[in-house]
Write a protein that binds this DNA or RNA. Structure first.
Lengths: 128, 128
DNA sequence: CTGGATCCGTACCGATACTG
DNA sequence: CAGTATCGGTACGGATCCAG
């Protein structure tokens, strides 16, 4: 890591060669993961319900994202052996524990979205 | 958005057609933005110091990321008119306000990284 | 030292067609 | 309904060279 300053909590290499922030972002820092977790907070949902809840997500990306979250133990997949097939996705305990931090991010976004837009508009006005 | 359930705070469309979570992720959801903000919490830093602090970031991506953060009003850029040139980056107030949520994410990552890895290992063992 | 500009491979991601 | 498979455009991001 080669740092000479004291890192903040959550940034330590932790003897694994990669800081936790980096690791969590590699997991859920993509476009859809956090949105899926956010939607599943309300309770278990089926594939297409989830698809409709998340504006703009494609079938493929929902599948890929769910697999990734399942792989990391954040989301559980339960298949009901009926016809037509019914698959229910829900947050695991680990997944629920992550919804706190995501909430914090969401709240921040709600509070500061206008400030963000203003800053961006000002910057774009000054420059090209 | 076409939802029939009550959304959680921070997920409302807010009359803008895009939920805040989505918007904040579009801004800082990339590989490097949060890491840069995280590093700047310690205080203002110069370009190459920052570069050394963030393992694996290329010169180009640091430049691009800093520009993006500056554009959104999260990071301030201050040039000292000396030779050789000295450029100092620091968090704006808005940037500092975001470090809270990022901390939450970092703390979560620190606490649960082993659980994540275990889950992933278990999943990979069962499957491919 | 602090970048901008360019080249270029790669990985992401949407669209489409197909399966159980 | 809940996926899988494949194709192809796009944008991310590293390497390199150049400039103030």
């Amino acid at each position: 890591m080669t740092r000479d300053v004291q890192p903040s909590p959550g940034f330590e290499p932790d003897g694994e060669g990669s800081c936790p922030i980096r690791e969590v972002l590699d997991r859920v820092g993509d476009t859809w993961s956090m949105l899926v977790i956010f939607n599943l907070r309300q309770g278990p949902q089926r594939f297409n319900a989830l698809r409709r809840s998340i504006e703009g997500i494609s079938q493929r990306m929902l599948t890929v994202t769910l697999r990734s979250l399942e792989r990391d133990g954040l989301v559980a997949r339960r298949v009901k052996p009926v016809s037509p097939p019914e698959v229910e996705y829900s947050l695991t305990e680990l997944g629920h524990s992550l919804s706190g931090p995501i909430d914090a991010l969401g709240s921040w976004a709600s509070e500061h979205r206008s400030a963000l837009r203003a800053a961006r508009a000002a910057f774009d006005a000054e420059n090209g």
